[in-house]
């Protein structure tokens, strides 16, 4: 039996307090890229009661994703946007979700992301990451940006960290572990980085961005 919206919100208020709940539920967060980072980030944010999630990815769920990304075997072949929206609504049924199935480029990102309070960069390609980060910092200076670099391989979990780079720009990861030259991405280390990004987003919304 799925709880009513009122029961759901009351449960979140009981956990977070009404002030934090208001801040979380009023927020719009864009998650750019729905792979190992983005799918985990979106789940944490939906559970925390973030009001509106904008989910962007151009890709479909592939068998090679399932060792680390939050999809199911039954979803292979589905667009990641649709599959993740489905999973999120099973977890947190009252989340307002908007999906855009498109590849982010220099020409479309500003229009797609302009209404977000916080933009989360969760892409996988290094040049695409740099494109989006530069683009957001140049063209959307009012947004907060939480990006990631370096979470591949079997290295220690303890080097994944969050660093404040600029006034509204945070970077999570170990900043060195490239997917090339390692065994690739493994679920826990990607989840650690995703958790850093999600927690940083919640902290920004809570007004704790002094670090």
């Amino acid at each position: 039996m799925i709880p009513t919206k009122e029961e759901w919100m009351d449960a979140l208020i009981a956990r977070h307090g009404s002030k934090l709940h208001e801040l979380f539920s009023a927020a719009t967060v864009a998650v750019c890229g729905l792979g190992g980072l983005g799918s985990n980030i979106a789940i944490s944010l939906a559970r925390a009661g973030i009001g509106k999630l904008l989910l962007i990815d151009f890709d479909c769920v592939d068998i090679s994703n399932l060792h680390r990304q939050q999809y199911k075997a039954s979803q292979i072949g589905q667009c990641k946007t649709d599959a993740l929206a489905e999973n999120l609504l099973e977890i947190a049924p009252y989340t307002d979700i908007k999906t855009v199935t498109v590849k982010l480029t220099e020409d479309n990102f500003a229009e797609l992301l302009k209404d977000a309070d916080i933009i989360c960069e969760a892409l996988d390609n290094a040049e695409a990451k740099a494109m989006l980060v530069n683009g957001v910092l140049e063209q959307l200076p009012a947004c907060f940006l939480v990006a990631a670099s370096g979470m591949a391989g079997m290295d220690t979990p303890n080097t994944i960290k969050t660093r404040k780079i600029g006034k509204r720009f945070y970077l999570c990861g170990d900043e060195v572990s490239d997917v090339e030259g390692t065994i690739g991405l493994v679920a826990p280390r990607v989840m650690l980085c995703a958790a850093h990004q999600a927690q940083t987003i919640l902290r920004i919304l809570a007004g704790k961005y002094e670090e």
Binding site: G36, N125, S149, G150, D178
Partner: peptide, 10 residues
């Protein structure tokens, strides 16, 4: 100067 260099993976 702060130079952030991105590596692949996500």
């Amino acid at each position: 100067l702060e130079i952030v260099s991105f590596v692949g993976g996500g």
